[in-house]
Simulated scan of single mutants.
Amino acid sequence: MVLVYRMPAKPTAGRVAVWRQLKKIGAISLQQSVCVFPDKQEVRRELDEIIRRVAESGGEWHLLPLRPPTPPERGKLVAQFREQTARQYLEIIENCEVNFQKEIEFETFRKNLTYVEAEEIRIEFEKIVEWFERVLVRDWFGAPNQQEARAWLERCHGLVHQFEAAVYEAEQNGTFGEGGPAWAQGDGAPSGGRPQSLATRSS
């Protein structure tokens, strides 16, 4: 399917909202205000909301069927979809490696082994999982980096369990237990200091 739309230049809030919604459902832009989607029922349902917003903002739109493209053209479209989704998987991997893992290292180093911190870490992990699931449902053509992102989620899940076990042991014994994460043992602080807020790119 192809969506062609036009919206008033002002106010910009409506244009930005439509752009964000189109990105969220996995559209690729052929040019400004011309987007392509696979013809799938779930995509059509979400397009209804986008079209309604375009109309309410005083814009115009056309949703057109796309006849089967030639093999070379189909290859170009599929490559664009795969590249877009692969970048999103890479962002998840970066978030796991640079932010989430470092956050657990930092909190363990400063012995912030509390139930409150454990709950915050689990909530942030669940946000990353939800982010991955949103990308996965739009991965129509098997984009690269999916398996690596999945592996990082499994690794982070293990780190969450290790941190929770360390919190439990600390509360039971009043000390930092030897059963804490292996990378937490040692005298040096984790490099780079406290990481930025987790899952900041998941919106």
Rank of each mutant, 00 (worst) to 15 (best):
G158C: 02
M7H: 03
P72H: 14
T85A: 04
E56Y: 07
R201W: 10
Y89P: 03
H161F: 09
L47F: 03
A13T: 09
R194A: 11
K76V: 15
A149M: 03
G58S: 13
A182G: 08
E105S: 08
T85N: 01
D187I: 10
P144T: 09
E97C: 06
L77S: 13
P71D: 13
Q88T: 06
R67W: 12
N173H: 09
P190I: 00
G186E: 08
A149Q: 00
A143C: 05
Q101G: 02
K40N: 04
Y168G: 09
R67H: 09
K40E: 14
V34W: 01
H62A: 12
G142I: 04
L47D: 00
A165M: 14
I92G: 00
S202R: 13
V34S: 02
Q31C: 04
P72D: 15
V34Q: 04
E130R: 14
E126M: 10
G192F: 05
R201P: 02
R138D: 02
T200P: 03
H157P: 00
Q185S: 08
L30S: 08
S33E: 01
V2S: 03
L159A: 10
Q196E: 08
V4Y: 05
E73R: 11
L30P: 01
P69C: 09
P11Y: 05
L66Y: 04
V36T: 08
V43S: 07
Q146T: 12
L159F: 06
P8C: 04
Q31I: 06
E126K: 11
I123S: 12
A166Y: 04
E42K: 06
L136E: 05
N173A: 09
R134D: 07
R6K: 09
F37A: 01
E119F: 06
I128K: 00
K10E: 12
R45G: 03
D139E: 06
V160H: 02
P38V: 02
T114S: 14
Q21A: 12
D48M: 08
N112S: 14
K24G: 10
C96W: 01
P8Q: 03
S197K: 07
H157M: 07
S57R: 15
K102A: 15
K23L: 01
R138I: 07
H62C: 12
Q41G: 06
P68V: 13
R122W: 10
N112I: 07
K111W: 08
R67V: 09
F109E: 02
A9C: 04
F176I: 09
V135P: 00
V16M: 07
G158F: 00
E60I: 13
A9G: 07
